[in-house]
Design a protein around this nucleic acid. Structure first.
Lengths: 228, 228
DNA sequence: CGGCCACTTGATCCGACTCAACCTGCGTGG
DNA sequence: CCACGCAGGTTGAGTCGGATCAAGTGGCCG
């Protein structure tokens, strides 16, 4: 269980994975015949690597996942964080274009891709659902291009906080599952700049921190204006 | 015909457009019943705006197109350039997430979206083709995230030149249809930095410029290493 | 209680931005 | 045919936002 995060670049069959749990759930309401199997991943464990063959489609049950690309010299860009309920790994190509790792200990459902493709042949509704998810990921990436290309450090941080808040139901109160370094690599900054940004936003009364990870938004309107 | 580029933010029906040409061509080989109609756009003319309803799918015949997002204060991020043969505007959502403008005078084929969706219901092959295009756009955007978030000015420029070369058949010799400002907004830089980058790469013997737009690559290996 | 890891804060540096001048090619009109 | 205007591009000088380097600090787990 408490295995150290390993560099799992080996191509051992994923079905031999540890922490197999004999539970299952349907992919979509409209496709109850496609069921997923649950696996647990520890913090920083690789779920799949960039360039690996696409075998599964994934759904986060608990914890959090990041997808990323890394350059030879170690520079890293995180494409997106996935929180419980979200799907990832559905590139539809033969290979994954980003790698995926668990941000924290996570439970993930895996759906067999071959089964899904077969299902999509019969079930038009489900095929459309898949396409919509890909299109949604594209929209997210396009929004992120503007953030990375043109926004200031504080604007990026504000946008990030609003995004996190949204995926927690806009209640202005949430726990960050990821480290400052992860946030930095998502926003195209350094961890120091992220940290300074948090301090700055606290000074501006826009938020409160209880520890490093627990966030309370105090001025959502301000953050929204700043972030978009 | 020679109308000045106007701010076409009005919602006049697009079928009243100037420069209608009574020619047509199929969308895919596998879907010969879906034909497109050709329109001409002058330089800087808007093809569709961010937030507009998606009515068509577009294919560049000649010229070039950029898709972009603009912030209220004028900061702009270009998502991608489209050269002859490429499709754009296939978000599959109800609204466009980016706007599209002609980089140079361009001829574009428009395909009716309703017709395409109806076709996709029947023709699984064509539906899959559409999904693959969306997935390809996603891959491009994800690659661009790494460029914008983590690469230096010269690395971005090198990657851009390699990308341009690739879409011109890797012959190391091409004409740039877009201005320095467009390149800058694509790469998340300023036009001055782009210009300095070109000079720098010339000094490094990596390329030659004949005028500002005509490029000859002299060291493709070097640019490739630098860009990726 | 001790050690470590994540985070914060401070000081300095540097790559890209800003502001400004100048150049260059091209279309226009005298 | 040349003078002019001007948009697009280049180059230079100075500035600045965020990176880097370097201490601290705090919280958690053993």
């Amino acid at each position: 269980m408490f295995v150290q995060p390993i560099e799992t670049t080996s191509n051992q069959p994923i079905v031999d994975w540890r922490d197999f749990a004999p539970c299952a759930a349907p992919l979509f309401a409209c496709a109850p015949e496609v069921v997923g199997t649950s696996f647990n991943y520890v913090r920083d464990e690789e779920i799949y690597g960039e360039g690996e063959d696409t075998q599964f489609i994934y759904k986060v049950i608990s914890g959090a996942v990041r997808t990323s690309k890394i350059m030879r010299d170690g520079r890293r860009q995180i494409g997106r964080f996935y929180l419980p309920g979200e799907f990832f790994g559905l590139e539809l190509g033969m290979q994954h274009n980003l790698s995926a790792e668990a941000v924290a200990d996570s439970k993930i459902f895996l759906f067999k891709r071959r089964q899904i493709e077969a299902m999509a042949q019969r079930n038009m509704e489900a095929a459309r659902e898949m396409w919509l998810m890909t299109a949604d990921h594209l929209r997210h990436a396009e929004d992120h291009l503007l953030l990375l290309g043109r926004k200031t450090a504080l604007e990026r941080l504000a946008a990030f906080l609003i995004e996190m808040d949204m995926s927690h139901g806009n209640c202005g109160l949430f726990e960050l599952p990821m480290s400052r370094r992860d946030i930095a690599d998502y926003l195209g900054l350094t961890l120091e700049t992220v940290s300074r940004g948090f301090s700055e936003l606290q000074k501006k009364q826009a938020l409160e921190l209880d520890g490093a990870r627990h966030v309370v938004l105090r001025n959502r309107a301000f953050l929204g204006t700043m972030g978009a």
